[in-house]
Structures are given as C-alpha cells and as structure tokens.
C-alpha cells in the first residue's frame, strides 16, 4: 500500500514538473531524520580501515535506543572487549586491558573512532539533520544511475562539526547517497557515501558506508552492516556506564 502511494507521488512529480521543485529543504531533512529514527535497534557490522597500505578490520556489535543512546562492543582482535556507551552528547569507553572506564571528551571526540575516518562525533551527530542544518535545494541530477536532489546545507549554529554540507539525496529513498563535508574556509574535509539501500521493517537503511578523510591521502573507511534488526527487545541495563564495566 505504501509503495503504491509512493509510485503515485512519483508519477505526479513526473507529470507536474513544477511541483517537483516545490520540495523544501525542511521537508527533505525531516525525511532524512525519519529514516534514522527508531525505538530500538540491534546490528552487527564490519569496519575496514585503510590507511595507505595498512588495512585493519574490526567486527562490532551494537544496540541503539531512540537514536540518542547506543552501545558498541568490539568483538575480535586486539580490541576485543572494548565497549563504548553513548548518551546524547556524552561518550564513555571501557578499556579491557586496564579494566577502566574512560570518558571521551573534548578534542578526543573529533578523532577517528579506532583510527577510522569516522570520528566519534560523526557517529553521535548522525541523527539530527533538521535541528542542525538549514539550506537550499540547488537542483536535480543523477548519481550512480539514481535521481537525486542536490542540497546545500549550512549549519544553524557554531558547534556543529561541519559548517557546510553538500548532500545528494535519493529522491526515492531519502538516503543521502553522497555527502561532501566542508570547513568554514571552504576546504573539503570528508566525503561520505552510502549504498546498498534496503528496506528493513519499513525503513530505508543504507547497509554500506564509505567515508574518506580528505586531509589524509589514502585514508578510507568502509562500514558494512551484516545484520540490522529494529524490533528487538533490548534490556534496559545495557544503556548505562555501569554495564560497561561488567562482563
């Protein structure tokens, strides 16, 4: 039923070109946020970090709640047993080798998570497009054979980590297929591409992300979700600093 409705809208937008440009940025951003909103979520993922000719792989398992809380555990290798707990804008990390919980704050948040091109901050800011940005739809174009809107976004306040973003939004799935993240000076800091979009329990989810840090040559991080589940019952106590220290 839903997809039928969507097809109808599609036809209408094709037939009435004038209406197509009437999509506002706010609406767009609202759709982006909607895709990222959930009650609970469980996923496993593999992150591959490439720096020049060094490649490292991390396997992680995570729980999320309301998109403002989340827990990630590293499952393999040297980092096995390392856990992170995020609540709103705060982040704690459990370091198994020294059996200690460390709060990550300040400049450390901007560093790449486990050395990857995604920073802790990037992960934490993921779900609040409408709150953080305003902007303008610049037009339509084609990206990897898909019709997208080109949107130029400007941060609403100074504490948003990327003052300017250029986003190519899939007109059908409302997934930001490609983002260019800029500093105030106009320098390109990162690119963020999403692909392998699937519908899981009614939500459009990109199962693959590729992030490149443009300030370092040869630096690339690929994140692949192996499983994603939205209707999981997650025990309450997981979302706490306490839980980090246990196990």
């Amino acid at each position: 039923m839903r997809s039928l409705l969507r097809s109808l809208v599609l036809v209408l937008t094709l037939v009435l070109p004038g209406l197509a440009h009437a999509v506002t940025v706010d609406e767009l951003l609202g759709m982006l946020d909607k895709n990222l909103t959930y009650d609970t979520r469980e996923s496993t993922m593999v992150m591959t970090v490439t720096k020049g000719d060094r490649v490292k792989t991390y396997k992680m398992h995570s729980y999320g709640r309301g998109s403002t809380e989340g827990v990630v555990e590293y499952m393999e290798g040297r980092d096995k047993g390392t856990k992170m707990y995020r609540k709103d804008q705060e982040l704690w990390m459990y370091l198994p080798s020294v059996e200690r919980v460390q709060k990550i704050s300040g400049h450390m948040l901007r560093q790449g998570m486990m050395g990857s091109d995604m920073s802790y901050e990037d992960m934490m800011e993921a779900s609040s497009w409408k709150a953080r940005y305003s902007g303008v739809v610049e037009g339509e174009e084609s990206f990897n054979g898909v019709k997208v809107w080109r949107v130029k976004l400007t941060a609403k306040s100074a504490d948003v980590s990327y003052p300017t973003r250029v986003v190519l939004v899939d007109q059908v799935t409302y997934i930001p297929l490609r983002q260019e993240l800029y500093a105030t000076s106009g320098m390109l800091l990162k690119t963020w591409e999403m692909s392998d979009v699937r519908v899981i329990e009614g939500k459009n989810v990109a199962m693959k992300m590729v992030v490149e840090d443009k300030l370092q040559a040869g630096s690339r991080t690929e994140l692949k979700f192996e499983a994603m589940d939205f209707s999981v019952a997650v025990p309450e106590e997981i979302f706490s600093v306490r839980w980090l220290e246990r196990n």
Partner: peptide, 16 residues
C-alpha cells in the same frame, strides 16, 4: 600509572 595513547592505527591504547 595508566598511560592512554594510541596504536599506530589510531585505536585507543592504554597500558598499566
């Protein structure tokens, strides 16, 4: 003493 540094890959690396 706990010293918190990084591995060459950027992972947080503590020693005690």
């Amino acid at each position: 003493v706990i010293a918190l540094g990084q591995t060459q890959d950027g992972s947080i690396s503590p020693i005690k």
